[in-house]
Design a protein around this nucleic acid. Structure first.
Length: 874
RNA sequence: GUGCGUGUAGCUCAGUGGGAGAGCACCACCUUGACACGGUGGGGGUCGUAGGUUCAAUCCCUACCACGCACACCA
């Protein structure tokens, strides 16, 4: 495909809206994002964390997805077999929530509709509205290999899910059991431990008396959940607690019904210092109590149903049956008070377990569910981290990963939802279980083993994270031995936020090692989370959420990317997002745009090919900018290689704006630098565009195409090679002396209130004469002096000084200088006068200190002499 | 409770065992061969507090304070 013609008439301001869609279209239609597996080149593969099909781009994508795009573009330019593999997640809970809302608007419901039509509807919705985020990603300039996009519900990926489930089941790593699970009453489904938030809330701690049948003794306990008393099966105390030793083994009546006798038992888990030191045990409704119940072989009656209402199915709950959990709590407390069993109620802070998705308070319930046995999977995953096959950047997140895997519990994977991968599990009428990859296989197995073909499929679906867990290999065609799987697994890096290390990263490692035989990625880069400028989480309800699409519209995608990357710090765990950074970045782009206009408008025109003039014809300014370019290449390359996007962005910003535009471009305006400027400007600017392309893909392409270049797109241009850049540090240093001199002259002119256009006589130190003379005479026309004279008394520090200014201003200027210099001299003298310092400090440190003192002293002398010359005393 | 992170200019943040930095904001000046989404210059900080190590500490160590986060069976 032909490169699009850049605008011939360049307007004064850069207009991203006019450039970005055109270039994106060019890239995508040219297939520049697409790659085929190529064993001849080193692979660079990033599996994209699949956004929810219901998702919209948010600022978090700026900090996690931009780095992926940057690295992919960078590695493509390095010549790697680079591919960024995109996709979408079916997001069961989120999608069902959307549909349930829609259905209720239409006056119908999930259950009324039936499973088949509901799932059809979910597919339809996913195809029609889902994936909006992919369009948004295009606007952000993200360039994954769209042709390889996958959806977790695709047939091939679903087959992989079934295969993994069946395999784990047959290995005994998936089992069905009645366990205490986290029930989300609002979402009407179970959720895993990792999907729960603990939020501190104000609650109460009720002290309640449990009397003995004969009234001879009683025991007082403290609880935050009186409604679960109906399912109490014991009272537990610490075995070493002297207060209760005499009661262990005895029984009390369970309030408020006082109809059942429950034993008092001893268990280590009880904290003697909390509450009364005695705790009620309710195995069916509390995790700790469940463990106690298991240890002591206690019954586990349940008194709550899936609506979080009191139910009398398993044990007598009196008149509380049918009450909502909170209503029941209130009624029971009232009744206890009436029966004088309530000792007291005190305010108490408690950590409420909240479902991340629905926000409802989680209810621990006993339920028959499917689980993955995690320990055997976690061990290799831990070993991989410990022996370095898996590393985290920043390193500290590895400890989070380690801690979680060390304390891992079995993973509840069955969900009471319809949208998702239905469990490949069938039951016979007799209750026998058949697990198979397909229905045909299941029927055959049932016939052989149980002599029946009448099967009912388990209605539950799998936790969405189950399919995400196999993402790194399922998207490569697993279990087929595809070339993709062969060359692109494992991938090179995974980039995500730290909030899903447990939910996703750890599970990918475990499942990847188990099924694909290797750690799915050697490096996990954890990107910072984005907060508002006050450090608050961005949310719709707070009204502080910023839509990245708005930013793209206002400043352009390049500016958004640069704006957010420049706020990233390698070790940072958050970004306090400042929109002003995007505005600055827009200005930065405009700066580059105008620098380009200048370059393109040189009267002598640009050379056809990107070649440098002969080394001996290069000026000091040329040597300087080339040396700076060399260092920028080294710095940016190193920064990208260690995921330090903030430093890379900052470094490029400096190079482009403060070095190239502010100094070199200005230097090319004077006579001495004109002969070589067209070649050097195009060469350096071409290289700069390539260096910056991963971060600002659009404007760099637009400019690169307008400059002398090879190829059709900067996307596939080669990464700048530092060995191709001539470096002359001596010449560069001389130019830096020029810069210092110019700055000094400019500063003094302002302080002496001389008009900027004035050209006062300038004196310069004899030992820097050559350099500074050139400086003043050449590239600082606005600051240039009319005459130069050397002054043997001057050296170092202030390189030049102007005379013939208004006397008041001069005196003021001299006094300030003298004061500053005196304090420096004093500091130096004190330090060097310290025998300990000269004896123990490193010799070069002492020498440097001596030099500094010398310089300050002579400058002070000069200032004093200058004052004396105008008849003043400093 | 345990662990991790953070505390440097008004704001957001770099940084280093030996002279405190950037951007924005602020002030002044400037339309000088591209750019006012620009240029030049300037003011502004006892580097959270208290100790310790060191010739020397913003940096290393300890304690404390404040903030953020993760984990945790205080019912």
């Amino acid at each position: 495909m032909q490169s699009p013609n850049p605008t011939t008439e360049l307007s004064k301001t850069y207009d991203p809206a006019n450039v970005e869609p055109r270039l994106y279209d060019f890239w995508e239609r040219s297939g520049f994002f697409h790659e085929e597996p190529d064993p001849a080149r080193p692979p660079f593969i990033i599996p994209m964390p699949p956004p929810n099909v219901t998702g919209r781009a948010h600022l978090g994508h700026g900090s996690t997805y931009t780095p992926m795009d940057v690295l992919t573009r960078y590695h493509r330019m390095l010549g790697d077999n680079a591919d960024w593999l995109p996709g979408l997640d079916h997001a069961a809970i989120a999608t069902e929530a959307v549909l349930v809302r829609e259905l209720s608007k239409e006056g119908t419901s999930r259950d009324a509709m039936g499973r088949e039509r509901f799932v059809e509807r979910a597919w339809e919705w996913s195809r029609t509205y889902g994936g909006t985020i992919n369009e948004q990603f295009r606007k952000l300039g993200f360039g994954p290999d769209w042709e390889r996009s996958r959806f977790t519900m695709d047939e091939q990926l679903s087959a992989a899910v079934r295969k993994v489930f069946v395999a784990l089941y047959r290995e005994g790593l998936i089992y069905r059991g009645k366990r205490l699970i986290n029930w989300d009453p609002k979402g009407q489904t179970t959720v895993s431990d990792a999907e729960i938030d603990h939020v501190d809330r104000d609650g109460s701690l009720w002290h309640i008396t449990y009397p003995s049948k004969d009234g001879a003794y009683s025991i007082e306990i403290a609880t935050t959940r009186p409604e679960t008393m109906l399912a109490d099966v014991a009272i537990a105390v610490h075995p070493a607690d002297a207060r209760y030793a005499h009661l262990i083994g005895k029984s009390v009546l369970a309030p408020p019904l006082l109809a059942r006798e429950i034993p008092i038992i001893a268990d280590d888990v009880v904290d003697m210092s909390f509450g009364t030191g005695a705790v009620k045990v309710t195995p069916a409704h509390d995790a700790t109590d469940y463990d106690i119940g298991q240890r002591h072989n206690l019954p586990m009656p349940s008194i709550m149903d899936f609506e979080a209402k009191i139910s009398g199915d398993e044990v007598d709950v009196g008149t509380y049956a049918g009450l909502d959990r909170y209503e029941a709590r209130k009624r029971i407390v009232d009744d206890l008070r009436e029966k004088q069993l309530l000792v007291k109620e005190e305010p108490h802070r408690l950590a409420a377990a909240i479902s991340e998705r629905s926000g409802d308070v989680i209810e621990p319930l006993l339920s028959l569910q499917w689980f993955v046995k995690m320990k055997p999977l976690a061990e290799p995953a831990l070993a991989a981290y410990r022996d370095g096959r898996l590393r985290f950047v920043p390193e500290r997140y590895g400890r989070t990963y380690e801690q979680w895997l060390d304390n891992i519990r079995d993973w509840n994977i069955s969900r009471q939802l319809w949208w998702g991968h239905q469990l490949p599990v069938w039951y016979t009428a007799a209750g026998d279980v058949v697990v198979a990859e397909t229905e045909e296989e299941a029927i055959q197995m049932a016939r052989e083993r149980f002599g029946t073909t009448e099967l009912t499929r388990d209605p539950d679906t799998l936790d969405t994270w189950f399919s995400s867990g196999i993402w790194p290999f399922s998207i490569l065609g697993w279990p087929e031995k595809t070339p993709e799987l062969d060359h692109w697994y494992p991938s090179q890096v995974l980039i995500t936020g730290w909030e899903i290390i447990f939910l996703w990263v750890a599970r990918m490692v475990m499942l990847g090692m188990h099924f694909a035989g290797e750690v799915p990625f050697p490096t996990v880069f954890i990107s910072p989370l984005v907060f508002d400028a006050q450090g608050r989480k961005m949310s719709k309800s707070l009204g502080n959420a910023i839509d990245p699409m708005d930013l793209v519209e206002r400043y352009g995608a390049d500016a958004f990317r640069m704006g957010i990357l420049r706020q990233m710090r390698l070790e940072g765990q958050e970004i306090r997002f400042q929109e002003s950074r995007c505005e600055e970045a827009r200005n930065f782009n405009n700066k580059m745009w105008n620098a380009t206009r200048y370059i393109l408008s040189l009267p002598e025109g640009l050379p056809r090919a990107m070649t440098l003039p002969k080394a001996e014809t290069l000026t000091q300014a040329d040597h300087w900018i080339l040396t700076r370019l060399h260092d920028a290449i080294v710095g940016v390359t190193e920064a990208f290689d260690r995921f330090d996007f903030g430093s890379a962005a900052e470094l490029l910003w400096r190079f482009v704006w403060y070095e190239f535009c502010d100094w070199y471009l200005e230097a090319t305006k004077v006579e001495q630098n004109r002969a070589t400027r067209a070649s050097v400007l195009s060469f350096v600017w071409n290289n700069a565009m390539r260096l910056l392309h991963p971060i600002c893909p659009f404007i760099t392409e637009e400019i690169w195409l307008a400059l002398p270049h090879d190829g059709v797109t900067v996307m596939t241009a080669s990464w700048p090679d530092r060995f191709e850049i001539p470096v002359d540090r001596e010449a560069a240093q001389a130019f830096e002396a020029h810069m210092a001199a110019s700055e000094s002259i400019r500063r003094q002119k302002q302080e002496l209130q001389l008009p900027p256009s004035s050209k006062p006589p300038v004196r310069i130190p004899a030992d820097l004469a050559a350099a500074v003379k050139a400086a003043v005479a050449t590239f600082t026309p606005s600051a240039a002096g009319a005459t130069l004279s050397e002054d043997p008394a001057l050296h170092g520090g202030i390189a030049a000084i102007i005379v013939d200014a208004p006397k008041d201003a001069l005196v003021d200027r001299y006094r300030k200088d003298a004061a500053r210099l005196r304090s420096e001299v004093e500091r130096g003298e004190k330090k060097l006068g310290n025998a300990q310092f000269t004896a123990k400090a490193a010799p070069e440190v002492v020498a440097k200190e001596r030099e500094k003192l010398e310089a300050y002293r002579s400058e002070l002398q000069r200032v004093e002499a200058a004052m004396a010359a105008i008849g003043e005393r400093a």
